[in-house]
Design a protein around this nucleic acid. Structure first.
Lengths: 158, 158
DNA sequence: ACTGAAAAGTTCAGCCA
DNA sequence: TGGCTGAACTTTTCAGT
């Protein structure tokens, strides 16, 4: 999928606010309403735009506690990894889950209502899992930056 | 802000796809088009919906490498912490940044075009920072789950 | 092949019962 | 709250460069 400069400019706007009308984006990048819509459609179909979603405030929804967890597994066979991935994907508390290199095998971002709920989660999800060797919790004190954007200024290729 | 059962049902749908027309959401939750639109407006104004954004595919934009980094600072005074937060917020490669408890002080999610670009980033952002004691990199091998959703099923309060 | 302009089709936002 | 109406937005069509 070849992205030109105009696509990147459109995405730079659109990724922060999908409610901006196409003619407004068009004005700033120098394109007509229809042209912007066509490009957005193409970017959706090509999978560059994965989804158009609402970013909700966890605290407003009763989930003020965010924890990052490093998890080390006991056995790391393909079947073990697959089973752990499946389990994590099924827990609603797990907002993000990465399989990584290094000492840790998995790193999770977990949202809960309070620390008691977090402890309950670690019991159900990690302690009761026979294959978790150890895990380390980091309670988030502050979200300095939230993952809503892809740094387009880094990825512009001319 | 009091959220009732219908608000949560609407958000559960809307957070995954903001392009679903209000009358479709209305059908599934048993509400009229106008009622759904009124509630969405109220949720926006109350800050429950922080933003309506496009989730882009980093790989499609030339940023296939994701790394998670644990950073430990040398000095942790208020001014030191503030300075580090400011610096991280300014780096476009830093997609997420959390200030946490535990051995690490900060945990970053970093997107780059390749490992060379990641190394260049660590030099500029971490090694050249006089106050970084140490950092550990975890290269992401797989995104098991991506942070696009708030677990509404956990937060329903009756 | 991609653009812009205009028409047709949807969705949204305010009004009133 | 639901239903209606006008406005706004999107999508398709069509012709031009």
């Amino acid at each position: 999928m070849g992205l030109d400069e105009l696509d990147v400019q459109i995405l730079a706007h659109y990724q922060y606010d999908t409610r901006t009308p196409a003619h407004v984006i068009g004005r700033t990048v120098g394109l007509s309403t229809a042209a912007v819509q066509r490009r957005l459609k193409r970017l959706r179909e090509a999978g560059v735009i994965e989804a158009e979603i609402a970013q909700l405030a966890p605290a407003a929804l009763g989930l003020p506690v965010t924890c990052l967890v490093d998890v080390q597994l006991e056995r790391e066979g393909a079947a073990d990894l697959h089973r752990f991935r499946q389990r994590m994907a099924a827990f609603p508390e797990v907002q993000q889950c990465y399989y990584v290199t290094g000492q840790a095998d998995f790193i999770l971002v977990v949202l809960t209502a309070d620390l008691a709920a977090y402890e309950a989660f670690t019991r159900r999800a990690l302690l009761d899992d026979g294959n978790v060797r150890s895990f380390t919790s980091h309670i988030v004190l502050e979200r300095v930056k939230v993952g809503l954007s892809v740094p387009l200024s880094v990825s512009v290729r001319r």
